[in-house]
Structure formats: structure tokens, C-alpha cells
């Protein structure tokens, strides 16, 4: 499923479009510990987190993730938005909790299997 289709299906807010909207999302990961996320994510994963600082952009960029969804309408720092723009990382947001987002993505067929 393409990222733009997931955005429509889950009504995600686009904070930064980036250049991944046509990516085929291969899977997903949910986590707020950056060491865990850097070690466990795969290329084109969609990452759900409540972390809002700028280092999440570096993680998404280095691991070639499709994008980041900020759960619970978390508000990113200005530096995070700036870095997302500079690095063309797709940054999304939803009022849903991480758990609800995982369930919704699972219903769309996005697997978390490692």
C-alpha cells in the first residue's frame, strides 16, 4: 500500500510532505526509544512515535523509513519540522494513540512482522 493511500485511509495530518508519498510501505514499527527504533526498523517502514524532537528525523532518514506518524497529536519542535523539510522526511500526525494507530495499520494489511 502506498503511503498516500494510508494517509487518506487514516485521515493523517501532513506536517511535512517529504518525498515518500509514493513509497510502498513495507511494514511498520512503533517505539519511543531511539536505540530500539534504529536497530529494529527496516527500509520503508512507517514509524509511530510520541517523540517530537529533531533526532527522530535523523533516524527516519538514516534508516530510509517511509515516514513518521506522531501519535496523540504530539507537537513537533520547530527544529524537527525544519529538519524534516531539509531531509525530505514525511512527517504525519494523528489524534490516535500509538496502539490505535498500530491496530488501524494492521487492518489495512500493514504488518509489523520482523
Amino acid at each position: 500500500m502506498r503511503l498516500k493511500e494510508i494517509i487518506d485511509a487514516l485521515n493523517l495530518e501532513i506536517l511535512n510532505q517529504g518525498d515518500h508519498l509514493d513509497d510502498v510501505v513495507q511494514g511498520g514499527y512503533s517505539g519511543d526509544l531511539l536505540s530500539d527504533v534504529i536497530a529494529s526498523t527496516r527500509k520503508n517502514d512507517l514509524w509511530i512515535t510520541i517523540q517530537t524532537h529533531e533526532n527522530i528525523i535523523a533516524v527516519a532518514s538514516l534508516k530510509d523509513l517511509s515516514g513518521i506518524i506522531l501519535a496523540k497529536n504530539s507537537v513537533p519542535l520547530n527544529e524537527t519540522l525544519k529538519n524534516a523539510k531539509n531531509e525530505s522526511v514525511t512527517l504525519l500526525r494523528s489524534p490516535m494513540t500509538s496502539f490505535e494507530l498500530v491496530a488501524a495499520l494492521s487492518n489495512l494489511g500493514i504488518s509489523g512482522k520482523r
Binding site: L33, L34, V37
Partner: peptide, 16 residues
């Protein structure tokens, strides 16, 4: 609070 300090960094490096 920034999601660091889980005590995973050096072990991750060694494992990888």
C-alpha cells in the same frame, strides 16, 4: 525524555 539512555547503544553496536 528524548528517547535515549535505554542502555541499548553499545550492545546494539556489538550485535550489529
Amino acid at each position: 525524555e528524548r528517547g535515549f539512555g535505554a542502555g541499548l547503544g553499545l550492545p546494539n553496536i556489538k550485535k550489529t
